[in-house]
Amino acid sequence: SRGKTVSPGPGEHPLQYNYTFWYSRRSPSRPASTQNYEQNIRRIGTVASVEQFWKFYSHLVHPGDLSGPSDFHLFKEGIKPMWEDECNRSGGKWIIRLRKGLASRFWENMILAMVGEQFMVGEEICGAVVSIRFQEDFLSIWNRTSSDQTTTSRIRDTLRRVLNLPASTIMEYKTHNDSLRDNSSF
């Protein structure tokens, strides 16, 4: 459902959108498929205010402390963190590779920018993902319209600013269509 399931409490600071936290664990032994992915992803909660965000966030393990390949996702309520969701189908994502040890801090800065509406791209942002892997970690931020270059450039520039990325950091944009076609993510 696309409706709001939670609301800010009395006196709390509302967010522009409600956001849902999701967690997924990769099972490397099984081939990637939509069905496996849906079985492995868990919705862990939705927040509607700054206060609820912190309350929730402070109870989560820092992504950098997770063991084994796993992902945290933070998506606008009602948007599933899947390529096939109607809000994602025509979209894509910016991907940033991180060496080990940086994921927790960068993830926090990225989601603060997202829930604080720092990207200034209207309805375009769908959600964000941190992916913990063996050799390196990845951040990604998903938007609705991969063909909208003004938007994707603005998202890239905002990310560089809020994460204070070195100029040498490689950022790659990938459409979900391409991800679906080559059936790969990281």
């Binding site: 522009q16 700054v50 206060e51 912190w54 920018a113 829930v115 604080g116 509406e117």
Partner: peptide, 21 residues
């Protein structure tokens, strides 16, 4: 319409507010 914008500093300050504990 109006968008609800929060900068990083505000959000981090809110983290320590009693209601968010």
């Amino acid at each position: 319409g109006t968008r609800i914008i929060y900068d990083r500093k505000f959000l981090l300050d809110m983290r320590n507010s009693p209601i968010a504990q």
